[in-house]
Amino acid sequence: MNLFRLLGDMTHLLSIIVLLLKINATRSCRGVSLKTQELYAIVFVCRYLDLFTNFISLYNTVMKVIFLGSTFTIIYWMRFHKVIRVTYDRDQDTFRYQFLIIPCLLLSLILNSEFTVMEVLWTFSIYLEAVAILPQLVLLQRTNNIDNLTGNYIFLLGSYRALYILNWIYRFLTEPNYRQYLVWISGIVQTIVYIDFFYYYIRSWKNNEKLSLPA
């Protein structure tokens, strides 16, 4: 484990904490995409199936459980919490799951390193994670008055991806035979998805204005 990887994971964790705190403190999930959260739940479930078969480290196991637990908590709040669910922007969060899930599933059936259930689901989770933020970005574009915390949540998620790329470069340079092309390409695609958001986020921060994305 190198510093970039640790910082990446901590940024990812922080992004989820920011989202949990925002929803819990304001009793509102305004501007948060349930579709993105549910896609992340699918990503984590498919990827962390090895929780039961392959022990890597205590760190790894604890982080996986936290990611699963926090994502399901957010989904539960948004769907069932008496006060919070009323604040969900149902009519604006209209991105269709199948546009992302079906292509990723097909791609994982074709492009994988081993044709087994575990490996295909794991690969599917890698592809799906790359595009899972799209419903959130679309919702953000539609919502005026994006609150700072939602903007920070997305900024932290994008930063986590950028740090993972640095982690891969570091590992490539220091570990013999370290290669994972599918993961690298998906990760680069995932980071590119955030570039537009980063541009507007940094611009609004420099100009001391509220974040808004052009339609």
Binding site: D9, S57, N167, N177, Q180
Partner: peptide, 10 residues
Amino acid sequence: GMAAKQKDEL
């Protein structure tokens, strides 16, 4: 192996 190694990332 390689497959197990990949999965040390979250």
